[in-house]
């Protein structure tokens, strides 16, 4: 293949990442120049840790958006609470087991997520409304069950995820990075990934091609909820505790991360690497703005502008003329 064609194909693959990469570079530059002591291993490590939690949730939501049909998931906040409440407190025959805890939490999340999937796919309730209502419902159920009083006994292995492996990377960050690589490979190389993207692109055509569209359309909601539940366990590990109202911002932030990362809202084109980058952008942006002592209103305003900018650059549908 000649050089021009190679460059072109590389460009078309990478152009969706440009906003996120650009944002990270810009923020990194601003903070190094203008904020004393921002660029030290501990601070970056902490930012990456927080971004890891957001990244897991965002990757789950990526599945839903990639599957198309205006899918999205705003119920992730409540699923995180469920994961955080249940996961860390599990003991198996008196022993801690991180893997088993994750498994249990994934199953619970998947079951709850099924309700979202059924409501959206079979009952045709718009995803925005269905997942928002479920978010309130599941949270309300947790409040009813616990009266908002929670205790968590963190397994030592979960707390150990905060440990440094190689500055500034901590165990949790590497774990999430591994998940990201696995998912991205799955998306681009495996049959399931292909089916997912085809479903997102055009459901009718996918059906005609023998793809189990119903299973995928419902399944992605289960995956999203399961990953959100895992994210909740990780959040508990990071903060050391669980409060009913500690995940309120996550649904919107996870969506924003996916968008900034270049996944197309219409579906069909998705990227897990992008979603992780989006999570980093948001966490970094928040930290930088905090370091500048900006009032809460200004921070929210700027985040909105950044998002809008990314959308205008990245996320426009074709002209009707075409």
């Amino acid at each position: 293949m000649n050089k021009q064609a190679l460059a072109k194909s590389l460009y078309s693959k990478l152009k969706d990442y440009i906003p996120a990469a650009g944002a990270i570079a810009a923020l990194g530059l601003i903070s190094t120049i203008l904020i004393d002591g921002f660029m030290n291993a501990n601070n970056i490590g902490a930012i990456l840790l927080r971004a890891s939690v957001l990244a897991i949730v965002a990757m789950g939501v990526t599945f839903v958006i990639t599957a198309g049909d205006s899918g999205l998931d705003l119920s992730t906040g409540s699923l995180m609470v469920v994961g955080a409440m249940v996961g860390p407190n599990l003991r198996f025959g008196g022993q801690e087991s991180l893997i088993l805890s994750f498994l249990v939490v994934i199953v619970i999340g998947a079951l709850i997520g099924c309700v979202n999937g059924v409501g959206v796919y079979y009952l045709k309730i718009p995803a925005l409304v269905m997942t928002m209502a479920m978010n309130g419902l599941v949270t309300g159920f947790c409040i009813l069950l616990t009266r908002s009083q929670l205790t968590v006994n963190l397994p030592a292995k979960l707390v150990a995820l905060n440990d440094v492996v190689v500055e500034p990377f901590r165990k949790m960050t590497l774990l999430v990075a591994a998940v990201m690589i696995l998912l991205q490979l799955m998306l681009t190389k495996s049959k399931f990934g292909q089916m997912l993207q085809l479903t997102g692109n055009n459901r009718q055509a996918a059906r005609l091609n023998g793809i189990p569209v119903a299973a995928i359309a419902v399944g992605v909601y289960s995956i999203s909820s399961a990953m959100a539940a895992v994210g909740g366990v990780l959040l508990a590990g990071y903060t050391g505790l669980v409060h009913i109202d500690m995940t309120v911002e996550y649904p919107m932030q996870a969506m924003a991360a996916v968008i900034i990362g270049g996944t197309h809202a219409a579906g069909g084109v998705g990227s897990f690497v992008g979603s992780v980058m989006g999570a980093i952008v948001l966490t970094l942006l928040n930290s930088v703005l905090l370091a500048f002592n900006m009032p809460a209103g200004a921070r929210t305003f700027i985040q909105g502008l950044v998002l809008l900018g990314v959308l205008i650059i990245n996320n426009r549908s074709a002209k009707l003329r075409q």
Partner: peptide, 15 residues
């Protein structure tokens, strides 16, 4: 909010 406090304190510690 503990998570928020942790973020802020980390930021302070660096600065």
């Amino acid at each position: 909010n503990q998570a928020e406090a942790q973020t802020i304190m980390t930021s302070f510690l660096s600065t």
